[in-house]
């Protein structure tokens, strides 16, 4: 395979949430572009299923609950030097304001925010990130674009949008780039709670007339991980079929 400017040959890329949905597609597509991928999630069977779909022989899986912050240090120590990372593990919970309490909020923030900040801290502190590396955080257009009951999820993704800006600034001295991808709706395990009726209503809001495919988010990640985006940092790349045009 030729390694064009969008190629990922020779790059070691950590991908969290690789056992399902977007993270799975990101892993498969990055491997197709030549990356060596390290797949992280809690469900080892589904992780191995992703692994079996990844091209190349230097890929592997690590079973890790990323909200187990005490276990993260050991997890990071065992990692090789990285050229890239995609932080894709995340959850959603629809709670109207009357049902948001410190414990429901904590649940969402534990994985969507705290695990990401702590993992990043350890990667930096234990010097696991090569100069020139690229970090990609999967945020959501939902950070800024309201849908009913999504307040805590919105807030968690909003936190990530700001986090990448500060981090990009701080890591720039090492030529490490940090960007976010903000997808619109893509049918995965995450969206299975939404009824068909609501989905039908929802799809009307997409100018391009359909929801996205997991691969379409993966292609954005490939761009941000590749040398094609060497001068891109702190950006929020919206991939949403035009949802937020209006």
């Amino acid at each position: 395979m030729t390694n064009g400017i969008f190629g990922l040959h020779g790059k070691k890329v950590l991908i969290t949430g690789a056992s399902s949905g977007l993270g799975k597609a990101i892993a498969i597509e990055c491997a197709k572009q030549g990356a060596e991928v390290i797949l992280v999630g809690r469900d080892i069977d589904r992780l191995n299923a992703t692994l079996s779909l990844c091209e190349g022989s230097n890929n592997w899986t690590i079973q890790q609950d990323l909200t187990d912050l005490n276990g993260l240090s050991q997890f990071v120590q065992n990692l090789p030097m990285l050229d890239g990372a995609v932080f894709c593990a995340g959850i959603i919970k629809r709670n109207p304001i009357k049902f948001i309490n410190p414990s429901t909020l904590q649940n969402i923030f534990d994985i969507n925010v705290f695990s990401i900040v702590e993992l990043t801290r350890l990667l930096v502190k234990l010097k696991k990130i090569n100069n020139d590396a690229s970090l990609v955080m999967i945020s959501s257009v939902g950070s800024d674009h309201a849908s009913l009951g999504n307040i805590s999820y919105m807030a968690s993704k909003g936190a990530i949008n700001s986090f990448i800006r500060g981090l990009a600034f701080e890591l720039a001295k090492n030529q490490v780039r940090v960007n976010a991808v903000l997808p619109g709706m893509i049918k995965t395990n995450l969206t299975k709670g939404i009824s068909d009726e609501d989905l039908k209503f929802e799809i009307e809001r997409y100018p391009l007339g359909r929801f996205g495919q997991p691969e379409e988010v993966a292609y954005a990640c490939i761009y941000l991980l590749s040398d094609a985006s060497k001068w891109v940092t702190g950006t929020k790349l919206v991939i949403d079929g035009g949802l937020t045009l209006r």
Partner: peptide, 26 residues
Amino acid sequence: DSLAGLSIIAMIDEEYDVVLEGSEFK
């Protein structure tokens, strides 16, 4: 209305520790 629907699902989760998916609820 739809907010009432989400609120009932959230209340059932909070009070009874039972998660009703949107597809079941409908």
